[in-house]
Design a protein around this nucleic acid. Structure first.
Length: 971
DNA sequence: ACCGCCGGGTGCC
DNA sequence: ACCGCCGGGTGCC
């Protein structure tokens, strides 16, 4: 059983590696290079501090006023405490709510007076459990737990004392409301000693074990297969049929959501001990978490066409035969014309929405649809656009005569279920078109939200997999002239849009048709896009109203467990939509190493997630037959001259670092150490990579403001220029207008400004909690247009470049058609490599983070082309592009420099080692002998172990960091 | 609330 | 009696 493996693993971790068990949960990116070095460093959360908290202690209190509220609780049920500062009787009032959010009562006023101070000053989070007396009529006891940042503990104790309260120390397990006993806090001692020493495993082994979590239940509904509807013309692979069966069963399921059970005449939540009469709703959907390349998009298309209602296919009509010869793939044309470039035409020809008169109900005899005159006009116009005005194309207008009526019939018949009242049946399509408050409403439209980068992929795949002879109404909601007419939108079968468009519509409040309508299905592609709960995109997505909800993602957990919360929130699974319950019942227990928490997490995930990896098997056969992937390490010996240069920098750095060790200031000088390491890494590649560095050297503290500024800018450039695509710790997106704080942490300017505004006048750095202010932010100066190649500077080779060129030329001799990726973290290095490539007559292209989307697409298309004369080489910066990047034209990869994080390398390799790759992939890693690079390999191996831990939420101790530095510098 | 608390009624044994 | 005691009214914040 995989969970057993996992929980065992999480208990047998080597404390040397994992450090002390800490409650820190939110893994926010630290200084990017630091983050890369130490894996998942954990620092205080920006948004909610309740994640890096320790338990201060517990206190028995009283809930009063039960008489006046309807919220009920059971014994041992968790309750939430909520401040109610506007209570007319007592500004200190503290409400007590049950898991459902219904008020149970108030905290007795004397205690509330004290709690109010603690809560308002954010000194602690207070959580409650009602131990007994849940049926009392007037008051009931409540066991309160106080959680907070360690440094606030004393203040909390003092406040309580001032009011005559004293916390019972943490340790007795009763405060958790679970039967399980939890490991005590940080100072606790009762962790069971590891039975086995930590065993090093290969990444592949670990992946397999980890991913078994998602497949090891041999449930019927995960191995059963369903054929797709006829309209899907691509035959599904076996694992896709299984996914289809599973998704359909999820959409039609009437079961209870996870952790709920029926007891006598009520429903009981086994995690929170909450009970209610009403059956809690299960999500009609879930997470399709297949790894990239297993065909999630095709599977999703199949679901849309196959499961309209109750397993019946989407009622689509065939286009009439005589139209066949003039058939144009509807989807593609639709896209080309209506979505972006021609959307204006559409809009211009439409009457504006405000001038639209009320739709007139045209109820024909057989007739069950409502079409307003002008809406018909719109439809016609849309069709004109859809078909580029070709009158010959079968379209909506024509279908009015040919297939539309039939379609309506088919649609209506799909609705004719015994459960539907006559009344709603009568309304037929009209009701389905747009009728908000009809509980019987049958919805039609699937809304697909994806990143812009995969929008075209959806369109391609729809065109590729859907029978072109059917009338599938697809609308690409994108571009400034997109239609906002709800009738237009709700009559579609599929609407495609992007997170950005959705968020910007949402921002306009009241003018977001996507938020006014209810959808049959909302499908989030690359669903991890919404992992940041504070992002506007996430809020926009969460505000959508849908009957069925799906998340497609190859990486449901990207940084930490907390990534899952937004996803669960979208799925609306009680009680996890409320962050407090998610946190109390799953996130914190798991992070603390609680077995029960891990079990709950696993059972939750398993019940709503389908996960297969490239190595998953169906009936003993791998789902994907990928060619082999071989990794070779090519050792490089530096020339004498290079070695001398390397040694001089190394000696200098070693001396400095040794001094830090002696002074015990290693961690405070961490950024400088990383800088030194970066220079060494660069020297392994090419001497001129680090030529400009180390110009400013002023003693700490004695800097002039100007010198400090310079220094910070240099540090920021170090971070930005190291070649990795940096993320902002606040928005978790790529840095937008990077600024550096005085404490040397880099954020997007808008993000950090917002934090400062919100927390002023006491704003603290989200990463290190040092004071920050708007006037202390240093912006990155605009780069001089081309400082890369200084004109006077002569190009010189390096050992690595020689080795690379040698390999490339040999390869070309053997097979001139073979294509290669040349990967480096240093874009400057890629530029240097361009020179000999040109000299030797290689046709190459390039992809790095600085390129616009358009240029990227161009570069990829050129490279993927199999025409003679197309580039055989792509220079690729390690982290450029999203996960979707497809570079299968390459069968060779040259990794010029090792990354701190082996996962980043693997991801990069996967860009060519994926579906569509026909040849074995050979990867060559260039590693300089006797250098920091060799030591990085050692650390990579240790990291592979760490990555397999329970969601990588363990904080490496400072000792670990120090040991890493020792390893890297041969100290 | 089978409590506590309040405030009015009441007052030898 | 500027008390005690009784018993009814009452009850979150």
């Amino acid at each position: 059983m995989a969970w057993r493996f996992l929980s065992k693993f999480s208990w047998d971790l080597d404390p040397e590696i994992y450090g002390d068990r800490h409650y820190n949960v939110f893994t926010h990116k630290f200084y990017p290079d630091v983050e890369d070095l130490i894996g998942s460093d954990i620092v205080a959360a920006v948004d909610e501090d309740f994640d890096s908290s320790v338990l201060f202690g517990t206190l028995r209190g009283t809930v009063v006023g039960l008489r006046y509220y309807t919220g009920v609780v059971s014994n041992n049920e968790m309750v939430a405490l909520q401040r109610e500062p506007n209570n007319p009787y007592d500004k200190n009032a503290v409400k007590v709510n049950n898991v459902n959010g219904d008020q149970v009562g108030h905290i007795k006023k004397e205690l509330a007076a004290c709690l109010a101070q603690i809560m308002d000053n954010k000194l602690a989070f207070v959580e409650g459990v009602v131990p007994y007396g849940a049926n009392n009529a007037f008051t009931m006891p409540v066991q309160l737990s106080f959680w907070g940042r360690g440094e606030n503990k004393q203040a909390v104790l003092d406040r309580l004392k001032a009011h005559g309260y004293k916390l019972a120390p943490p340790g007795n397990s009763s405060e958790f409301g679970f039967g399980t006993s939890w490991p005590p806090g940080k100072a606790g001692t009762s962790y069971s000693a590891p039975v086995h020493a930590a065993v090093q495993m290969t990444t592949e082994q670990l992946k397999t074990e980890f991913d078994k979590l998602f497949e090891d239940l041999k449930e019927d509904d995960k191995t059963r297969e369903v054929e797709a509807a006829e309209a899907v013309i691509t035959p599904l692979l076996q694992h896709q049929k299984q996914a289809l069966a599973w998704m359909i069963s999820r959409e039609n399921n009437k079961e209870l959501p996870p952790f709920w059970e029926k007891r006598e005449n009520y429903f009981y939540n086994t995690i929170t001990n909450f009970a209610e009469k009403k059956q809690p709703e299960n999500v009609l959907g879930g997470i399709l978490a297949d790894e990239m390349g297993l065909g999630k998009t095709l599977t999703a298309i199949a679901v849309i066409l196959t499961n309209f209602y109750d397993g019946k296919p989407l009622p689509v009509e065939r286009k009439r035969n005589q139209l066949k010869e003039e058939r144009i793939p509807a989807v593609k044309n639709y896209y080309k014309v209506s979505s972006i470039s021609r959307a204006k035409e559409e809009s211009d020809s439409l009457p504006s929405q405000s001038s639209t008169s009320h739709p007139q109900r045209a109820t024909s005899k057989k007739g069950k649809y409502t079409v307003s005159n002008d809406s018909e006009l719109k439809v016609q116009n849309m069709e004109k656009i859809k078909t580029k005005g070709e009158a010959t194309n079968p379209g909506r207008k024509r279908r009015k005569a040919s297939c539309d009526v039939q379609e309506d019939k088919a649609f209506a018949s799909a609705l004719e279920e015994p459960t539907i009242s006559k009344k709603s049946k009568k309304k037929g399509t009209a009701a389905a078109q747009h009728k908000k408050n009809d509980t019987q409403e049958k919805l039609r439209t699937t809304l697909i939200i994806c990143p812009l980068s995969v929008l075209s992929n959806w369109i391609d795949q729809l065109e590729q997999h859907v029978d072109p002879d059917i009338c599938l109404n697809t609308y690409v909601y994108y571009g400034s002239e997109r239609s906002k007419d709800p009738r237009v939108l709700s009559s579609q079968d599929i609407i495609l849009t992007t997170y950005t468009v959705l968020a910007s519509d949402y921002g306009t409040r009241g003018n977001s048709p996507l938020h006014k309508l209810k959808w049959l299905r909302v499908l989030l592609d690359e669903g991890h896009t919404i992992r940041n709960p504070n992002a506007q995109q996430t809020k926009a997505v969460l505000a959508l109203d849908a009957q069925r909800r799906w998340i497609l993602t190859g990486t449901p957990i990207q940084n930490s467990l907390k990534d899952l919360w937004s996803l669960l929130s979208f799925l609306k699974l009680k009680p996890f939509t409320d962050r407090e319950w998610w946190h109390r019942t799953i996130q914190r227990p798991v992070t603390m190493g609680d077995r029960g928490g891990l079990k709950r997490l696993q059972s939750l995930i398993k019940s709503i997630t389908l996960r297969r990896t490239k190595t998953s098997k169906v009936n003993g056969k791998p789902v994907l037959k990928l060619p082999e992937r071989k990794v070779f390490i090519q050792h490089i010996t530096l020339t004498d001259q290079e070695r001398r240069m390397y040694c001089s920098v190394k000696d200098e750095s070693t001396a400095a670092i040794a001094r830090y060790f002696n002074e015990g200031t290693v961690l405070t000088n961490y950024a400088d150490i990383l800088g030194a390491l970066l220079r060494l890494r660069q020297l392994c590649c090419h001497p001129s990579l680090c030529a400009s560095a180390s110009s400013s050297s002023c003693a700490e503290g004695s800097c002039t403001p100007e010198a400090l500024r310079e220094k910070l800018i240099e540090k920021m450039k170090l971070v930005l220029g190291s070649g990795s695509d940096e993320e902002c710790a606040i928005c978790l997106e790529s840095l937008n207008l990077p600024v550096i704080t005085h404490c040397a942490h880099v954020f997007c300017k808008p993000c950090i400004c917002e934090v400062i505004q919100r927390e002023k006048p006491n704003a603290k750095c989200p990463l290190c909690r040092k004071d920050i202010g708007l006037d202390h932010l240093v912006e990155c100066p605009v780069e001089d247009a081309d400082n890369e190649r200084k004109p006077g500077q002569e190009w010189v080779p390096s050992s690595k470049i020689n080795a690379l060129m040698h390999a490339l030329i040999e390869l070309k001799k053997q097979n001139p058609a073979v294509k290669s990726l040349i990967v480096s973290q240093f874009t400057k290095f890629l530029s240097l490599i361009e020179v000999p490539l040109k000299e030797s007559g290689f046709a190459f292209t390039r992809l790095d983070g600085s390129m616009t989307q358009k240029k990227r697409v161009e570069a990829i298309q050129q490279f993927q082309s199999n025409e003679a004369g197309s580039p055989t080489i792509m220079l690729l910066s390690l982290k450029a592009g999203g996960v979707g990047l497809n570079l299968t034209a390459a069968s060779r990869v040259f990794l010029m420099d090792p990354a701190w994080n082996p996962a980043a390398e693997d991801q990069c390799f996967d860009r060519c080692h994926r579906l569509g790759q026909k040849q074995d992939v050979i990867i060559t890693k260039f590693i300089v002998k006797n250098s920091v690079e060799e030591n990085m390999l050692k650390i990579q191996n240790r990291k592979r172990e760490l990555a397999a831990g329970a969601f990588g939420t363990k904080k490496p101790s400072s000792e670990t960091k120090i040991n890493e530095i020792k390893t890297l510098m041969d100290l």
